[in-house]
Design a protein around this nucleic acid. Structure first.
Lengths: 248, 248
DNA sequence: CAGGGTTATGGTCGTGTCAACCAAAACCTC
DNA sequence: GAGGTTTTGGTTGACACGACCATAACCCTG
């Protein structure tokens, strides 16, 4: 009975469970953290896992991710919620076939995130703890998390999502710290400032200035996020408009 | 009964159908084409659709995509098969809830692709016909296709997947045509050559030369694909190594 | 209040890449 | 052989990048 494999026919389909997992990333104390929950039931009982839940039949995937984010963190109106992968290996859940759609949520550090509406234990864990394997995650969540970080890394370079990590108003040093932490590099403050300000409309200067920390220093200008837009096409050597050379 | 929403429990789950759709892209006659199949059963009977099928419980998502690609095109050992999105809107299939995982397969132009193993009608359709809405697709496949093209566009700029479009041996003009078609721009042949050759190991010169077409021209050098690798980190202003300035 | 420490911000400048263009080489057809 | 076409190599001005210096404006300590 293998007719119509190309134009699928949902009669007699093999049933799957579909879940949505949300990797909540935030900068806390200058380091990248991820929100994890502790499993209370087998399998992987007592281990840390990425929060997630079932997709409901009446909602879309994006809506399911938003709902999960709201339930876990209380944060509404996803500042940044992007789907980045689907995982469906047969062995990923020992009980049955579960296909999960993974999302990234980038949040600025909010107090009280660790306590969701549910009674399960939740915590913000430094990402370094997981990437070196010091904390083991349930299911294939370690792989999902690695993919999420990789996605954030490229998004940081290609789009303007860095402003989602910082508060509604921020200094350029805070913004620079996001790049430095995610990429693990040190950036030149002066050159970074020029490059950020060169992309017009992406950060907007409020008139105000931040109070320096206990270490002193010149008070930094305060900015707010502008439009978070995708960088233009990185296609090079485009012809001006007129004639062509070396064409077929 | 809303306990344990965070650490999902596959008992009493809502069942979904999970399918895998494969957007097969190829360059044919100098233009970008996509492989479509014509639906033989309602709904959307008689309309064109992206080939796809059910995920089987014993296979992973990637394996399901490879199997579908093999069934539709006869092509084995996916030259380039990447997952790029999941779609699960409740209304996307009028009969029931179907979540589909979408893949891109980039193939070089192969004769006889249009005839798959199944008896369904299949054809290579120019992409422009669909993007201007001249051909309507079933389900949400128009959106999936738009997303696929967008993904290929960025992948073309960021990785070396362009070689997947051309044959096992190719001229730089053929490679340039891929970029020009996907991005819809005209590129300078001399500058393009320099940029491609600058990325060492990505195209490798065989000694041979291609025979020029009927229009004449100097015979072009023949290359073969090297390693198709991800470009390095586009992070700027990284500090050399020593001291720091403007740090916190 | 003076001084040292720290950070933010602005400026400079050599190097390298990019893009536009030119020119020669090597083929085709007529 | 002439004219056309394509590939390939070369040149050159503009501009971005990266390294570094200098100054401004705060902190803290004595």
């Amino acid at each position: 009975m293998v007719v119509e494999t190309t134009t699928y026919d949902p009669h007699g389909f093999p049933p799957f469970a579909v879940t949505v997992d949300v990797v909540v990333l935030t900068m806390s104390d200058g380091r990248l953290h991820v929100l994890l929950v502790r499993r209370g039931v087998p399998p992987f009982e007592g281990m840390w896992a990425i929060p997630g839940g079932f997709k409901r039949p009446e909602e879309s995937l994006d809506e399911a991710a938003q709902r999960e984010l709201l339930e876990e963190t209380g944060v509404d109106g996803a500042s940044l919620l992007r789907q980045f992968g689907a995982y469906g290996d047969p062995e990923r859940d020992p009980r049955m076939n579960v296909v999960t759609i993974a999302y990234i949520a980038v949040l600025r550090d909010v107090q009280g995130i660790a306590g969701g509406t549910d009674a399960v234990a939740a915590a913000l864990v430094p990402l370094s703890q997981i990437l070196n394997g010091k904390i083991e995650l349930a299911f294939d969540h370690a792989q999902i998390l690695r993919d999420a970080v990789e996605r954030v890394r490229t998004d940081l370079a290609l789009t303007g999502i860095a402003t989602a990590f910082v508060g509604p108003t921020f200094t350029l040093a805070e913004l620079r710290a996001v790049y430095e932490e995610v990429w693990g590099v040190q950036l030149d403050a002066a050159n970074f400032r020029r490059s950020v300000l060169a992309e017009k409309g992406w950060v907007i200067s409020t008139g105000r200035r931040a109070r320096p920390g206990p270490e002193g220093g010149k008070p930094a200008e305060l900015y707010r996020a502008g439009r978070m837009w995708r960088h233009g096409a990185p296609i090079r050597y485009a012809q001006p408009s007129g004639k062509r050379r070396g064409s077929k």
